[in-house]
Computed example of a mutant assay.
Amino acid sequence: MRGLHAYSIVGAVLFVSVYCCFYGAQACLKEEREALLQLKDSINKHSNATYYVLEDWVGEDCCQWPAIICFSSSSRVIEIFLNSARDSSLGVWYPNATLFAQFKELESLDLSDNQIGGWVVLEGLCGLKNLLSLNLGDNKFEALPPCLLSNLSALEVLFLYGNYLKGDLPGLLKQCEKSRSRFFPFRLSDVEQTEVF
């Protein structure tokens, strides 16, 4: 009889564990969901156009939304894919860069082809300490703030193609290489430039 009771307890513990893992997982964090919804609202503000992925950003759990990936144990957002989300007829977009500070465990961010402009936007990304991959290609950036390369110590992949970068870009990249032995898989020829140096 004792053996049967022990098996019943083990079975109940297993059932509760499996149930919690598959059905009782936490939804995404409220502050991350609110930041994503604010980004969604600002992307195509003053336009009837809506990026098809953003239409499905509804409900309490942003971990279930398309273009968003969360870490399963913490329910924190770790990947955001907003490539080509902005209606190009709206012109340059200056998103509220402080919204990105909510994503404390973000590892991958794709903001390519969104007509983003302005140094302030990039400075807002400088606090993302866990960022491994950042795609800023096909936007309207003309310069990179020093903090972008110096503060993002985990960064392994950086895409800058299709921007209008000016200034001492090679000097900035050399400074970055000296400060840490991190490999950046891009070449200066990958960065389209106008008025080079």
Rank of each mutant, 00 (worst) to 15 (best):
Y52C: 05
L54I: 07
E55M: 09
D56I: 07
D56V: 11
W57D: 05
E60R: 14
D61R: 05
D61Q: 00
W65T: 00
P66T: 07
P66W: 10
I69D: 06
C70M: 11
F71R: 15
S72G: 09
S73K: 07
V77G: 02
E79F: 03
E79Y: 04
E79H: 00
F81K: 13
L82K: 10
L82P: 03
S84F: 01
S84I: 01
A85D: 03
D87A: 04
S88N: 08
S89M: 04
G91V: 08
P95K: 02
A97D: 09
A97T: 06
L99H: 04
L99P: 00
L99R: 02
Q102E: 12
K104S: 03
L106M: 07
S108G: 08
S108A: 10
L109K: 08
L109V: 11
L109P: 00
S112R: 13
N114C: 05
Q115A: 15
Q115I: 09
W119L: 15
W119C: 15
L122N: 05
L122K: 01
L122E: 07
E123H: 10
G124T: 14
G127P: 03
L128D: 01
K129H: 11
N130G: 06
S133L: 13
S133T: 03
N135F: 01
D138W: 09
N139D: 13
K140C: 13
A143K: 14
L144G: 01
L144E: 06
